[in-house]
Amino acid sequence: MNPLLRAEQAALGAVLLDPGQLSYLDWLSPDHFYRPVHRALFAALRKLRNDGHPALTAEKSVPLSWVTDAVAEAGLHVRGLTAVYAHTLISACPRSAHAPVYGRVLEGAIHRSIAAHAIRLRQAARADALQGGVEGSLDYADVLSGVLGDLARRWGTKPRPVAPATPPATAPAVPPPVRADRTAEDERFLLAVLTERPKAMDEVVGWLRPGDFAAPAHGQVYRCLAALHHRGEPTDPITLLWEAQRRGLLTDGTLSGDQLTAICDGVGAGSAEWLGEQVLRSSVARTAAASARAVRALAENEALPPGQLINHALHALGPLDEIRTRWQDASGQPAPKPSATDPSPNEPPTAQVRAALTRSTPRRVPGPTEQRGSAPTPASARAPARGHS
């Protein structure tokens, strides 16, 4: 059986055995459980606790009504739950005092949540690629960044971008054929304009990079044009050809003389700034899709601890943050991006964060001699009882 599913059963079984364990699981919410029946049962147990169920003040053993009432309440919201399954959950709990550790079902919830949001970012990027937009990709990147920050606080760690030791394996992007043809055409037109009118480089050189070109050969031509512009040398088909030769692009197969001739002989009329923005738009969508694939690959690695997953996912969004800044410069409408480390109005309070950290340090169960010599304590602090009356 999946370890996270076993942990869900054990956490619920611990609370059914000892209602006081709920106070150590306040950092969990019903939607952190994978199975609908588990979500409904955990919500029911919290409702009974909030309503002041008599089991919370039981002096000796936990009354059977704690289990039956929880099953009845959960049965109002989900089908198929019986008292038999509730006792199966009790049997699945080795030690009720270890409930905070079993509460690591939050790990599975973190992986599932990040994977789901990565899929949505990929869908937004594909829509932008088809429509020639950027808003959907950038907006949903903000959503994913905010989710990562919130999950980091719930897990009890500080969100910070950290590169993984081994980059996740992702499938190569396959752009929509129609849009790919349009992007290649825009790139060729832009390079022709920059070759015909070298001063037009001033309009794009501040925010357009060689990596923004979908075709690697086009990116290398742009790099040559930018180098000539940077050195203040004349730009024409001959100097461009010489610069490509000097960089070894003609000998290593990156470029061919025919490709350069086709670009130099192209129509050089048009706005370099407008064409550059079209190239950058396509680059934003591709970068968003690449980041989404990387984040999803990380989330699907079940062996990756949540803290590392969150920080690696933030690192995977880094290229999208960088190209966002350049897009804002190009469009002339900069908009501040919410930081993933900014406090969320819905973030759990400090007490819940401290409770979350107890998942790694379960409470010590008093020994038999300590139990005999101790004074009566409230039900929430008693050693867990494994029976019901």
Results as ranks from 00 to 15, higher is better:
residue 1 M to L: 13
residue 6 R to V: 14
residue 7 A to N: 12
residue 8 E to V: 10
residue 11 A to G: 11
residue 13 G to E: 03
residue 14 A to V: 08
residue 14 A to R: 02
residue 17 L to Q: 07
residue 18 D to S: 15
residue 20 G to M: 05
residue 20 G to Q: 02
residue 21 Q to L: 08
residue 24 Y to A: 08
residue 27 W to R: 03
residue 28 L to R: 01
residue 28 L to F: 07
residue 34 Y to R: 14
residue 48 L to V: 07
residue 50 N to R: 15
residue 59 E to T: 14
residue 59 E to H: 10
residue 65 S to R: 13
residue 68 T to I: 09
residue 71 V to H: 02
residue 74 A to Q: 01
residue 82 T to K: 11
residue 85 Y to T: 11
residue 88 T to Y: 09
residue 89 L to S: 00
residue 94 P to F: 03
residue 101 V to N: 08
residue 101 V to F: 14
residue 105 V to L: 13
residue 109 A to E: 01
residue 113 S to L: 14
residue 118 A to N: 05
residue 118 A to T: 03
residue 126 R to D: 05
residue 129 A to V: 06
residue 136 G to Y: 05
residue 137 S to A: 12
residue 139 D to W: 15
residue 151 L to S: 01
residue 152 A to Q: 01
residue 159 P to L: 04
residue 159 P to H: 05
residue 161 P to R: 01
residue 175 P to E: 05
residue 180 A to D: 11
residue 181 D to S: 13
residue 182 R to G: 05
residue 183 T to V: 15
residue 184 A to F: 12
residue 193 V to T: 01
residue 202 D to E: 12
residue 207 W to V: 04
residue 207 W to F: 11
residue 207 W to K: 06
residue 210 P to H: 05
residue 211 G to M: 04
residue 214 A to H: 09
residue 216 P to W: 05
residue 217 A to C: 04
residue 219 G to P: 11
residue 220 Q to Y: 09
residue 221 V to L: 12
residue 226 A to F: 07
residue 227 A to I: 01
residue 231 R to C: 02
residue 231 R to F: 07
residue 239 T to Y: 07
residue 239 T to A: 02
residue 241 L to A: 12
residue 245 Q to Y: 08
residue 246 R to L: 14
residue 247 R to Y: 06
residue 249 L to K: 01
residue 251 T to L: 12
residue 253 G to A: 07
residue 254 T to E: 02
residue 264 C to H: 06
residue 280 L to V: 04
residue 283 S to L: 01
residue 285 A to H: 00
residue 286 R to L: 06
residue 288 A to T: 00
residue 289 A to N: 00
residue 290 A to W: 02
residue 291 S to F: 00
residue 299 A to Q: 02
residue 299 A to S: 04
residue 300 E to C: 10
residue 302 E to T: 15
residue 308 Q to V: 06
residue 319 P to E: 00
residue 324 R to Q: 05
residue 325 T to V: 12
residue 331 S to E: 03
residue 333 Q to V: 14
residue 335 A to Q: 13
residue 336 P to F: 06
residue 336 P to L: 08
residue 337 K to V: 15
residue 342 D to S: 14
residue 348 P to I: 08
residue 348 P to M: 04
residue 355 A to S: 14
residue 361 T to C: 13
residue 363 R to L: 13
residue 364 R to D: 04
residue 368 P to L: 12
residue 373 G to N: 13
residue 378 P to W: 12
residue 379 A to Y: 04
residue 384 P to Y: 02
residue 386 R to M: 06
residue 387 G to H: 08
residue 388 H to A: 02
